[in-house]
């Protein structure tokens, strides 16, 4: 969870409609749609809450099971758009330059990122190759591209017919990217190989390292409830 803003727990009370709402009501860093109450149910225990009163930097958790509900950040979509764009450029670099260089008994070889997946095909494992490519390159790239489209539409206040479809693909795919897991795998491999050969990190290694940090930042900055409230609001 990354938030540079102050984080405060919001207390809940029950209003006349029987919905549980956040009690803070000052206009400081106001949520543009705070006037329209919008209930959501906790994904873990089904209790109903209203998160439309969250102020900038505040996050809400379920009072019964502690599950995360939503966080409101005033410039969330600008931030996510900028981070996604940078991450996409870095992923492009990470795919096109040597990732790791190896020197062993006078022999040299270089590995690129797509080769991590492609070399599995040449060893007769197309299914595994497909999965690896998906987890580390394709799914993150698709999520970032669609995220740029979604945040672009939200930031410029425009509605498009494909917006709900884009949102659905983003929130379905995002739990299937394994960027940070792969990067830990890279570090483990480097330590393993460095015992028998000389290894050098290429340009793509550093690009992918920065990419994975930005990707995790973009994913944790993106709030499901707030994104969909904005998409719905644009469509009205």
């Amino acid at each position: 969870m990354v938030s540079r803003n102050k984080r405060r727990e919001v207390s809940f009370s029950t209003d006349q409609r029987g919905l549980t709402v956040a009690t803070e009501r000052e206009a400081n860093g106001a949520n543009p749609q705070r006037s329209s109450p919008d209930g959501l149910a906790c994904r873990s225990c089904d209790l109903i809450f209203d998160v439309s009163m969250l102020r900038d930097g505040e996050s809400a958790n379920c009072t019964r099971c502690g599950g995360f509900l939503s966080r409101y950040t005033a410039n969330q979509f600008e931030q996510v758009a900028a981070v996604s764009l940078a991450a996409l450029v870095l992923l492009g670099l990470g795919c096109s330059y040597p990732f790791i260089l190896l020197k062993f008994n006078g022999l040299e070889s270089a590995m690129t990122l797509p080769q991590v997946s492609l070399s599995l095909i040449s060893h007769g494992m197309p299914v595994l190759s497909f999965c690896v490519a998906g987890f580390i390159i394709v799914i993150p790239a698709v999520v970032l591209l669609l995220l740029l489209a979604m945040t672009g539409a939200i930031v410029t206040d425009r509605h498009y017919r494909w917006l709900p479809w884009v949102g659905r693909v983003i929130f379905t795919l995002k739990s299937w990217s394994m960027v940070e897991v792969f990067f830990l795998g890279v570090l483990v491999s480097l330590v393993k190989v460095s015992r028998m050969a000389t290894v050098e990190m290429g340009v793509a290694f550093w690009a992918y390292a920065a990419f994975s940090v930005l990707f995790v930042l973009a994913m944790s900055g993106l709030d499901r409830a707030q994104s969909w409230r904005r998409i719905e609001w644009l469509g009205q």
């Binding site: 190896l102 997946s117 599995l120 897991v181 795998g185 491999s189």
Partner: peptide, 12 residues
Amino acid sequence: FVVAILVALINL
């Protein structure tokens, strides 16, 4: 992932 990386990297 470690296996996939080693397969791609160590091919001398």
